[in-house]
Nucleic acid binder design. Sequence first.
DNA 1: AGCCAGGCTCTCG
DNA 2: CGAGAGCATGGC
Length: 309
Amino acid sequence: MTKAQKFVIECIPHFNFELSVGLFSGGDRQIRKYEKGKFWQIIRTDGQLALITLKPLGTVDQPRIAVELESNDKISREQKNKAKALVTALLNTQFDLNPFYEGVASDKILTDLTKRLRGLRIPSTPTVFEALVDSIIEQQISLDVAHVLETNLIKAFGDSLNLNQEVYYAYPTPKKLASANIKKLRGCGLSTRKAEYIIEISKMIARGNLDLENYKDYDDAQGIIEELDKITGIGVWTAELTIMRAMNKNDVIPADDLGLRRVIAHFYCNDKRITGEEARRIAEEWGKWKGLACFYLMVAEAMEEINKR
DNA sequence: AGCCAGGCTCTCG
DNA sequence: CGAGAGCATGGC
């Protein structure tokens, strides 16, 4: 018997729902997907699994989100509140984009993009752990391959929820991956090395020796990078990517990233290949907004690619 | 077919 | 120390 609740979340303008969850168009239906104006995924509130389905209401200038929360168990008021907080964090809807738009107004290219992509926000993962594990998986290999492996990992180790004759998966918990064996992770397509990194980091969290969520409250991004860099399997690139996707910070970019270098080169260097150092120097012009600025560039380029077809 | 792909660590010299 | 090998697999 499915229990369901519906509620509405008010957002700070501007917010473009379609653009902000657009990168999940290619997502897996059992994990996280945007399709026909709806976005859905499983969330975890205290041990309870629930499916959230989001739809945009209002306009980019007066945005709201309709949320449907479904579970097989009774949904308490507390769980509903947690779901609300989680959705707010996932879509970063309490963030005011206007200072960013004003902050990059002197940059003609970005000004053009902020007009076209008005209301685009960087979506966030529910947990820092999820962003970190995905970032480790994405080291070196192509994103196409990485996404297959991430899906394999989630379906092999994630808790499942049966709802309306469908099966959905939540991201595996640190506890679950702490007790995973290398062979089964290898079966997901991971290298032995990466399997070891992930197990070891999961163990640190499960034992209470590492609190990734805690880093969200740090103001000093450089400090976070240095801390994470000490952990085996995590370099500067992985730390930066994790911060950008999970911590709602706008001033961190994975400058050495191949894709980001290509995007910056595309808009600012006539597609001539640039080094990570050059990318960092160009991005420094955008100061504390460099993370958001780079995200706008990446989305803009992705849309150009789609339009080419 | 083979080579490359949003890195990182370990091993040599 | 710095350079270089090795890693996983899907796509071109």
